[in-house]
Simulated scan of single mutants.
Amino acid sequence: MRRTIIALLVVAMAGSLLAGCSKKEKVIKIGVNQLVRHDALDASYKGFVDALKEAGYIEGENIEIDYQIAQNDQATANTIATKLVNDGCDLILAIATPAAQAVANATKDIPILVTAVTDPAGSGLVESNEKPGGNVSGTSDLTPVRKQIELITKFLPDAKKVAVLYCSAESNSKIQVEMAKEAAKEFNLEMIEATVSNTNEIEQVVQSLVGKVDAIYAPTDNTIATGMPTVAMVANSNKLPVFCGEEGMVNNGGLATYGIDYYRLGWLTGEQAVKILRKEADTATMPIAYLPDDEYTLTVNEEVAKQLGIEIPEELLEQ
């Protein structure tokens, strides 16, 4: 009898252990394909991770994050995308338009969230920004381009000609360039295009603008953002002010911007990820999200203003 009882206890304990194992929470695999390292994209990734953590998804506990940087190279972005798909990720975050396009081309099944993408529909990532219709959704970093162009006229009321500096390979930049041209007409500014294909061309192109334009406008272009120290080195030494698409570029030598908070943008994307992981939402019906207009902030680099001999307008000091 005693042996029978012991045997039954052993079976019961084994069953209990097996039951516990079967209830063990699955570790969720999240892949990240970030185009390049610079302040804005890094901040968006941090915001994404922090939003997941706030919701109880913690790396090393119940999620595993494979964070990859494509070094601003499309072929590398494509390779990373293929790797993340083959590794069986449960969700993929793509940061910046070229990285998003690489991931979207690699899978039509795994949920993809994009961030730091100006116009997902215009970049061919979704059917429409209101109704994505597939496995891709996310957040847009569309900035107030008109307000940024207007800002030039507030600092430089006599400005006549402005160069828009961007990488010709980035579709998100081309969208902003068209918006900038429309805004320039409203403020009686002549807008000329100054393009590069990689960071190695930045110094020569900026140097070629000296004496030909009154200012440079650099939208949220990843190549220019990465090479912003070079832009600033040439432009500021020649008293050529640079107005930027986002705060990180200003901090790296630009003069001013009205921009968005990329950490907040990444957080918003993280909140979308939580809904998808909890099966509360689907990418096909989840609209592309934007930060509210009242979260645009003015950033002025006072050291650069002093170097350029430009006085910050009184009305801007009050903001």
Rank of each mutant, 00 (worst) to 15 (best):
V136P: 10
E246S: 03
K161W: 09
T223C: 04
S140F: 00
G254P: 02
S123Q: 15
N236G: 04
V145M: 13
Y262Q: 04
A163N: 05
N129E: 12
T257I: 03
V231Y: 02
G134T: 15
D221W: 05
E203G: 00
F187K: 14
P120V: 15
P132A: 11
K147N: 12
L255A: 05
L209R: 11
L255E: 04
G248M: 00
M179I: 12
V162M: 10
S137Q: 07
P132W: 05
D119S: 15
T118N: 15
E193H: 11
L240G: 03
A232K: 10
T257C: 13
S128L: 09
I216H: 01
T143I: 07
V234A: 03
E150V: 07
E130T: 10
S140T: 12
N238D: 01
K161Y: 09
P157G: 06
T223Y: 01
E150Q: 15
A215L: 05
S237K: 14
V162F: 07
E193N: 15
I149P: 07
M179G: 09
K161H: 07
A180Y: 05
K185H: 09
P229D: 01
N188V: 06
I152L: 06
D214E: 08
I216P: 00
P132I: 11
D221C: 02
S171W: 06
P241S: 02
Q207K: 09
K185N: 11
Q176T: 11
S123V: 10
V145N: 09
G253F: 09
S197T: 14
V231L: 02
D119C: 13
A180F: 03
M233G: 01
V210H: 01
L255V: 05
D141R: 12
A163Q: 07
Y262T: 06
T220L: 05
S168P: 01
L125R: 15
G133E: 12
K147D: 08
A215K: 11
S237A: 11
N135W: 05
E186D: 15
L142R: 10
G133P: 03
T195K: 14
E201P: 00
N251T: 10
L151G: 11
V164Q: 06
S208F: 03
K160T: 03
R146H: 07
E127F: 04
V177Y: 08
E247F: 02
L255N: 04
L156H: 12
E150S: 13
T257M: 01
K185Y: 07
L189P: 12
C167T: 13
I175C: 04
S208R: 13
Q148K: 11
A218M: 06
T195E: 03
I202A: 02
E246M: 02
V196F: 02
N172R: 10
V145C: 01
T223D: 07
K154N: 12
I216V: 10
L255K: 08
P157F: 04
L165H: 07
S128T: 14
V250M: 04
M179R: 14
G254T: 07
C167I: 00
R146W: 00
V210M: 03
N198K: 14
Q148D: 07
T223W: 07
Q207A: 14
L151K: 14
G259H: 10
D261P: 05
T257S: 05
G124F: 02
D158W: 01
A232N: 06
N236Y: 00
L189N: 14
E130G: 02
A215I: 08
M228K: 08
G133L: 11
S197M: 09
A183T: 14
T118S: 15
N238T: 03
E190C: 07
